[in-house]
Design a binder for these strands. Sequence first.
DNA 1: GGGCCATCTAACATCAGACTTTTGTCGGAA
DNA 2: TTCCGACAAAAGTCTGATGTTAGATGGCCC
Lengths: 241, 241
Amino acid sequence: MNTRVSAAAPAYQELADRLREQVLAGTFAPGDRLPTEPELCALYGVSRSTVREALRVLSSQHLVTTVRGVAGGTFVVRPEPHQISSYLQASFSLLTASRSGSVGDLLEVRDMLEVPAAGLAARRRTADDLEVLRQSLFDPRTVDAEHVFEANRNFHVCLLRAAGNPMLEAVTHPMFGVLNERFLRVQASRRFWFRVDRDHREILAAVADGDADGAREAQHAHLQHLRSTYTRIDRQRRAAT
Amino acid sequence: MNTRVSAAAPAYQELADRLREQVLAGTFAPGDRLPTEPELCALYGVSRSTVREALRVLSSQHLVTTVRGVAGGTFVVRPEPHQISSYLQASFSLLTASRSGSVGDLLEVRDMLEVPAAGLAARRRTADDLEVLRQSLFDPRTVDAEHVFEANRNFHVCLLRAAGNPMLEAVTHPMFGVLNERFLRVQASRRFWFRVDRDHREILAAVADGDADGAREAQHAHLQHLRSTYTRIDRQRRAAT
DNA sequence: GGGCCATCTAACATCAGACTTTTGTCGGAA
DNA sequence: TTCCGACAAAAGTCTGATGTTAGATGGCCC
C-alpha cells in the first residue's frame, strides 16, 4: 500500500538526494564526518545496502569520500577544480564522440575562454608562472613525441593557471584536454609542432611583457592554427570511415 | 594473502572502472543493455551488492540508467548537456560557498562566455528563438516575484540556446544558475528589475536585428549592471556576518 | 475478430544478517 | 622508550530471501 501519489524514485536515490541537500546547504561542513552506515540506517529507516548505494552516488559526485578503518567513515569533501575538470572532460569526450560536428563547438568555446585567459595571464602572472611557462617550451626538433606532447599540455595548463581564476581553469582545461587527446596524442606532424613552438614563444613573450592585448592576439592566432589542423584531421578521419 | 602491490581500490570501484572503460570505448553503444545484475555477478565473480554499487557509480555519472520491470535492465545513455550543467552548477555552488571571493571569478568567466554568446545568438537565432525570447520578457511592475525570477532565467537560457552551441550552453548555464540562485532568488529591488527589463529589451532588439556587435555590447552592459548589484549584495552579506 | 482485464514473469529494489578487511589505538614486553 | 600484538570500529563483501515494477501473455466478453 502506497499512500504517496508517485513512488517513482528508488529509496537509495531519495536518500542520496536528501543527503546531498544537507551537504549543499552546509548542514554538514567540508571535513565533517557523516553518521556511520548503521546510524544512517536507523536515522532513515532503510537497510544498509540502501544507505551504501546512496553513499556511492554522492561519492562518485565528489561530494563525500569514504575511508576504512576505525577512524574511517564518510566525510564531506569540498569539490576541487580538478575533479570538476575530470568529470567535464569525460562528458565532453563522450559528447563529441557521439554527435558529429561538436569539434567545431568545442573550438568555438575554447576560443572564448583561452583568448581572454591569455590576456588575464599577461596581467596577473607571477614570476613563478613565467618560470614554469619557460620550462614548458620544447625543442620541436626533438624526437621524443611524448615529451613534446606533455610539454605542450603543460604550457596551456600553466597559462590557464596564470590567469588566476580557478573556475576558468576548471572549465577550460577539459576542453583543451579533449581536443588534445583526440587529435594530438596520435597524429601530429613535425611541421605542426614547429608552428606550435613558435606560437608558444610569441604568447610567452607577450605574457612576460604584461602585454594583455598582444597575448590575446597571439593566443587567438595560435588557436586558429590549431583549428585548421584539427578540422583537417577530422575530415580525414570521417573520409576514412 | 594478496600478491598485488596495492589492493587499495574496493571491488565496486574496480568494477565501475572496468565497466566505464567499456562504455567509453564503445564496447557498449548508447542504448545497449548491459548484462543483468546476476549475469554481471557471474561475469566478474562478485556479489550482487558489489555489482549494484558499481552500477550506482556509473548511473550517477550519467553513463547508464536502470529501469525496473520485465523489460528493464541497465542501459548505456549518451550524456546530455543538461546533465553536465546540473553537475557543474552543484560543483560551482559549493566552490563559491567554500572559498570567498569566487563570485568575482564566476562573473569574470560569465562575461567571457555570455558576451560572445549574445553575438552568436544574433547571427544564428531562429524565428522560434526570437518568439521564446519575447515571451520571456516580463513586466517589471508586476508583483509576482517568482514569475519575474523565472522569466529572467528563461531569457538567459533561451539566449544561450539561440547561440546554437550545446557545449557553450552546458558550461555557461550553471554559472548563470549559481549567481541567480545565490543573489536574486532572495533579494532584488524593484529598481533592479526595471533595469534588467530594459537591458533584456535592448539585447533582444539587437539579436532580432542580427546585430552581433550590438548584442555583445548590450549583453556586456547588462552584465556590468549585474556585477555591481551582486558585489553590493555580497558586501552587505559579509558585513552582516 | 477485436479490445479489455487478470495473471504471469523477468528484471531491479530492498531487506536482514553474517563475515572479512582495514586501520587507529592501547597496553604490555623488550 | 620503542616496538609489537591484541582489540575495536568502521567500511567492504557475501548470501539468500522477499518486495516491487511494468512489459508480456492469454483468456474472457462483446
